[in-house]
């Protein structure tokens, strides 16, 4: 539920200041309001967002238990992370979620977008598949986990189809796959909705031309639909990267079966950061902060790469 809408152009840039208006008393009266209007939001944002980010960067270079003296440690925390097998696993899981779940979600979203393009009842289907997006991750996780219980609905269904020994879904060896499938289920509706809106903007006559030229479904998608929605796909990829790295609740609540935290095999970096700071015996703020910085760096690298990848002359239509 952390969807964010990224606009390519800042609205403020659309209207260049008119020099003549600046001197009028009206404009001056408005100018006086600029800082009083912006200051409260800006101060709150700087104090609770920007300064903590900088503080985390500093903490990540120190050994600290959250209270008491801080001990400067240089890059020790980062070195420790590199050597910690649990962190390696968590980082690998974060990447797996990013690319495997992302890939499956995008493939499924494209498929559904094409199916829904001219299907009866598309609005209803869209409304239904979007719904999981606004439900708390904890709830989704409880529901999803319960479906896969040993005596749960999924296994009962498998048994009626003649599978006598259905897999132990919530065992450590299968749990991460179950989590990944669940994430695809939750996320697909969101991206399908965005892609559908992009497809709806494409003029119908382009598809009529396709029909006249005898293009098949794949050709239509490859040469008309995809190029014309390319910029939106880029925005989706950025949105996915940011939200995928933050995923926490959906994995965390699988602890329900095993105590405080789920098995380390299914941790991602978000869980690792939480565990280091708040759920281990002595809080390790240094390495939790370093994990946070790794996450931030990953977001930064992905956003830059994706913007470069998707930067292309937007097709005008």
């Amino acid at each position: 539920m952390t969807a964010t809408a990224v606009r390519e152009t800042e609205p403020a840039q659309r209207q260049p200041a008119v020099p003549a208006a600046q001197s009028s008393p009206l404009a001056r009266g408005r100018k006086r309001l600029f800082w009083p209007f912006i200051a409260p939001a800006l101060v709150l944002y700087v104090v609770f967002y920007i300064l903590p980010t900088l503080a985390t960067a500093w903490i990540s270079l120190n050994k600290w238990a959250g209270a008491g003296p801080m001990e400067f440690a240089g890059l020790d925390n980062y070195r420790r992370l590199l050597l910690d097998p649990v962190f390696q696993g968590s980082f690998a899981n974060t990447l797996t979620i990013l690319f495997a779940v992302g890939g499956a979600t995008f493939a499924l979203s494209f498929l559904l977008t094409m199916i829904l393009r001219d299907m009866a009842g598309r609005k209803a289907v869209r409304a239904i598949i979007f719904f999981p997006n606004i439900i708390s991750g904890i709830v989704l996780s409880i529901l999803w986990g319960f479906l896969f219980q040993a005596e749960g609905v999924v296994n009962q269904a498998l048994r009626t189809f003649g599978m006598d020994n259905p897999p132990n879904w919530l065992g450590t060896e299968n749990l991460f796959s179950v989590i990944m499938i669940g994430l695809v289920w939750v996320q697909t509706g969101f991206f399908t909705t965005i892609l559908m809106a992009a497809v709806d903007r494409i003029p119908k006559d382009l598809y009529e031309v396709c029909d006249l030229e005898g293009a098949n479904a794949w050709q239509r998608f490859r040469h008309v639909t995809l190029p014309l929605m390319w910029d939106v796909v880029g925005v989706c990829a950025v949105l996915w990267s940011i939200s995928a790295i933050k995923i926490f609740e959906f994995i965390y609540a699988f602890a329900g079966a095993a105590g405080q935290l789920p098995p380390t095999k299914v941790w991602n970096t978000a869980l690792y950061a939480y565990a280091e700071a708040f759920a281990s015996g002595v809080p390790k703020y240094g390495s939790a902060a370093a994990t946070g910085m790794v996450m931030l760096a990953l977001v930064g690298v992905l956003v830059v790469l994706l913007r470069r990848m998707f930067r292309r002359d937007t097709v005008q239509f």
């Binding site: 903490i59 940011i242 978000a270 977001v299």
Partner: peptide
């Protein structure tokens, strides 16, 4: 204007796990 708008947008990319310790 455009600087501050972009500055706010920057926050959209910062995961909560990054700010939660100092908070």
């Amino acid at each position: 204007n455009s600087g501050i708008t972009a500055f706010f947008a920057l926050g959209l990319g910062i995961p909560s796990q990054v700010i939660i310790l100092p908070l």
